[in-house]
Amino acid sequence: MEKVLEVIDLTVKIGEKNILTSINLTAYKGRVLGIIGESGSGKSMLCHAIMQTLPSFAHVSQGDVLYLQENLLNVSATKWRAYRGRHLSMILQNPSSAFDHIQTIESHFRETLKAHFKLTKKEMRQIALDALKKVHLPQPEQLLSYYPFQLSGGMLQRVMIALSMAIQASLYIADEPTTALDTINQKQVLTLFNQIRSETDATILLVTHDLGVIAELADDVAVMYQGEIVEQANVFDFFDAPQHPYTKKLLQARML
C-alpha cells in the first residue's frame, strides 16, 4: 500500500501547553482513515496542523508531516498555495460558512479552478457541471447561478465536495463533514465519499465523533483522547477488540 500522508511524532503547543502530543498516523492511498474522539480531544487541531492553517496562538514544536515523502512543514508558502486545494482539500463541518454568500456557485468554481489551471470560461463551466452531476445534485445548470444561501446545508456540503472533485484532489481532510446535516443528508455525503474513494483512489482523512460514521466508511481507525492517539487499528479489530478504556466506553454508548 502506498503511503500518502504520514504524520510523525507531531507535537503542537499553545504557549507551553501540549495540545497534541507525539501524534503518529499513516494514511494509505485509496483508504479512509477515521479519526474519532470526543469534543476537545484535538481532532480539529490535527487537521489544521496538517494543512498548516493553525491559529496564530498555536505552533508545531516538533515532528513531521509527510505528503508523498515531502515534508509539508518545510514547504515554502508559494508551494503550499499550489498544494492546498490542488492536492490536499479540506471539507469543514459547517458548509454555509465555507462559502462566500455574495458569489454564485459558478464563481466559486471559477475562483478555485483559476487558482490551479489555465482554462477558458467554457471549459470551467463544463468541469463544474460534470462535478455537480457526480455528486448527484439535481439541475446542475440552474444550480451554477444560485447563491450559497439559496441552498440547504446538505446541498452545500455536496457542492463543497464537488469543488474538491473538480480539481481532482488526492487527499481529502474532512473535519466532521456530516455533523451539521440530518441523517438522510449524512448518508448521501458518506456514500459520496465512498464513491470518490473507489473512483479516483483518493485518500480520505475522516474526523468524527460518531461511531456510526466510522462503521459506515472507515478502513482504519485512530482514537484521539486528550491530544494523543491512544489506539490505532483496522476498523474490524477496532469494533471487535477495543483496547483503550475510552474506546470501550465509546462502543458501549452505541444505541442498538
Binding site: T183, I184, Q186, T191, S198, D210, G212, E216, V235
Partner: peptide, 22 residues
C-alpha cells in the same frame, strides 16, 4: 424508508452491499 436507510451501521460488518460498488 428513507429514514430507515439513513441509519448508520453499528458495526462495519453491517455495511450495506448496494452502497459499495466494489
Amino acid at each position: 424508508q428513507a429514514l430507515y436507510n439513513a441509519i448508520l451501521p453499528s458495526h462495519p460488518r453491517e455495511r450495506k452491499k448496494k452502497d459499495r460498488p466494489n
